[in-house]
Design a protein around this nucleic acid. Structure first.
Lengths: 249, 249
DNA sequence: CTACTCCGTTACAATCGGTTACAATTTTTT
DNA sequence: AAAAAATTGTAACCGATTGTAACGGAGTAG
């Protein structure tokens, strides 16, 4: 009754072509305190997103018309909306995971609603509620507001309390690193990740960006601990990024 | 600090000649997350309404001097301010209801505070179309009385109780942002949205407007949380805006 | 009239990020 | 091993973009 008056938990958009699943999810998730909007296919998504403040998208992989994966990639390209994909059970799942469509999590159908709920909560927690601490290893802790919703903070807080302001592109770069911590990223990849550009030969943009970022977040920029150079390869972000839960395999 | 972070905010005016009831209601309703102003009789009502953005009036039927019902009718004639009348138990109630004084709801004294609360919420839900609180995320700035209904009210209420007056165009700008929260809006779009003008090259109107608005609503204008700059793109309003109506599913 | 408030314009400072140049470092070649 | 080539770090510079102080005109209230 009164529960709909304030939506403490969030507004979800469920896109699935199966009417029954839509109904089921709507009922279940509503009862869990979410506000739930549903759509049968991808055509309305843009419209809905434009007009409503959606917190998380639950997207079926198989959709009539435009494929769920395509939608996911498109959205990812231009927003940071958290996405949970529904996939069919089986080897598909692996292929899709490998594919890295960019969703925040995957749930295989048929699913246990409570598992889906747990995933949703985890993703929400990861992406908006809890700030993601990034431990610098040297005792400092860099704290992101919610960096996945890049729109929030561009300010990092180190353990001792000092604040560092990052410019947008510095922030994007750091976010790209943090999302793939321990992975070596080439300059091309970074360029693509941070602004969708592709390689230009002898481009030093990234170098400069990395240099500048280091000067802001490294204790001693001459001997970086967080962003290491891989000669001939690119850069790696070596700090630990704490996450809530990894999606189980 | 109260735990009303996610309660619907609103500013109530309680008019009752009984000091105890005023105190009781103020305490109770404040604890429920409302901002409460009280008055002992009808003489101050005009004054208060003129200076404060009142969302709902709780009005005792029996008042010294001007009768509650008369006040109600007068207000109804010239505004859409939601009104909940307090009446005495008994057959009076029916007569009054039949009388159609124009109040949105009636509650009989003595009343259970929780019932009154439920009525208040119901009325607010009914009458406030699409306003709603805009939460600053950090729990701070909350907005608005009914900005959709009553465009003459341009007062924002922040959590700590301070009020900020916005000029018309500042208000329009904020409304434009709030209606498209999370979307990057170019200066052109904003200009169009707020006053139907089209682009003039090198126009800094919007910049100034944004700057001025930030100084009013941002906690720290140097590091804005609500209205973010997108270099080369425009601005984004990042706060969550809760909405009521749902798109068809 | 005077006093305000609102808001557009201008001007200037600050910031951002791309480019270039060059030094330092590492790898490859001779 | 020395020289050359490749790779990286970054200072320095610059054009573009943004923030905002300051001024002043228009409108309004008293």
């Amino acid at each position: 009754m009164e529960a709909s008056a304030n939506s403490p938990t969030g507004h979800l958009l469920v896109v699935d072509d199966d009417r029954e699943i839509r109904a089921l999810l709507k009922r279940f998730l509503t009862r869990q305190g979410f506000r739930v909007t549903t759509a049968a296919d991808g055509t309305e998504i843009e419209q809905i997103l434009a007009n409503w403040s959606i917190d998380l998208l639950i997207l079926d992989l198989m959709l009539p018309g435009k494929d769920g994966m395509a939608i996911c990639r498109e959205l990812r390209a231009k927003s940071t909306l958290p996405i949970v994909m529904l996939t069919v059970m089986g080897e598909e799942t692996d292929r899709i995971k490998g594919f890295e469509g960019g969703a925040d999590d995957y749930v295989a159908k048929p699913f246990n609603p409570h598992e889906l709920l747990a995933r949703i909560r985890a993703v929400l927690r990861r992406t908006q509620l809890s700030p993601q601490p990034v431990s610098a290893g040297d005792g400092r802790v860099l704290i992101f507001g919610n960096w996945r919703l890049n729109l929030s903070l561009r300010r990092l807080q180190s353990k001792n309390g000092t604040l560092v302001d990052l410019s947008t592109s510095e922030f994007d770069l750091l976010a790209a690193f943090a999302e793939r911590s321990q992975q070596v990223l080439s300059r091309d990849q970074l360029l693509d990740l941070t602004r969708g550009q592709v390689e230009m030969p002898f481009d030093r943009k990234i170098d400069m960006q990395v240099s500048r970022l280091r000067h802001k977040i490294e204790e001693d920029p001459k001997h970086p601990h967080l962003i290491k150079t891989v000669r001939g390869g690119g850069y790696v972000f070596t700090a630990k990024v704490e996450r809530d839960e990894k999606p189980a395999a």
